[in-house]
Amino acid sequence: MDLILDIKNLTMNFGGLKALDGVNLHIRQGEIAALIGPNGAGKTTLFNCLTGIYAPSSGDILLYQPGAKPKRLNGLKINTITSLGVARTFQNIRLFGGMTVLENVMIGRHARSKSGILGAIFRPPATRVEEKAIVDKSYAILEYIDLAPYVNELAKNLPYGAQRRLEIARALATEPRLLLLDEPAAGMNPQETRELEGLLVRLQADHELSILLIEHDMKLVMNLARNIFVLDYGEEIARGTPLEIRHNPAVIKAYLGEEADAEIG
């Protein structure tokens, strides 16, 4: 299968601290991969480098485009990377709390629509058609993600699990080819986690979406991911299939400490 993302030798320094140290990671088109590791391993830093929030100190982040040369993402603006087809969610939910559920998703359509200031003021037919298309598409996404009953609620008033799903809905609205999920199951009960798992499988199957997942829920990771990358102290310590990772001594040591010989997962 073709690659969608290829990270080569990525390093991120904060002063003297190496948050990422020569990390290599690749994701194939349409694959669910997972990034795991103890707290402070640099997982979220990697997402921040990928989405343009941080400019990496060195290394390459290459995003493969259909029928074009791979695009180097280093140093691009955040919204440019979004329009290239990378979307993410956050570990701590970052919805636009004062806006409705529908508006939160409609904002995600921003990258995929054109009308500007004159359209907003004079509202020519083209703008109105586009606006209607935005609403329709946003409704469809909310239906797909089972949030339709909440459309006109303020995002901040939603139950926790629904807020998590709304983050995913908003990310989907940008029409990503690569979706980055930062601990999507954090704080969810087992029932909600199972639903999330079903949703991600559906997403990947229906849209051939490539997904990179940061997650501490090992059961979820082992069920979903075909490929797992393990970070510790900013360095990659292992990669492989769930089965390989489960029995990898370096991973077990990173998670459970020196003495442990237990299996994870």
Partner: peptide, 28 residues
Amino acid sequence: LLKFTKMGRAMRATAQDREMAMLTGVSV
């Protein structure tokens, strides 16, 4: 304008969380 247009939405989103607005594709 703020309530019902795409630009208005983007402005409200930017005011609430500038970085997140950029992540949803808004050119801040």
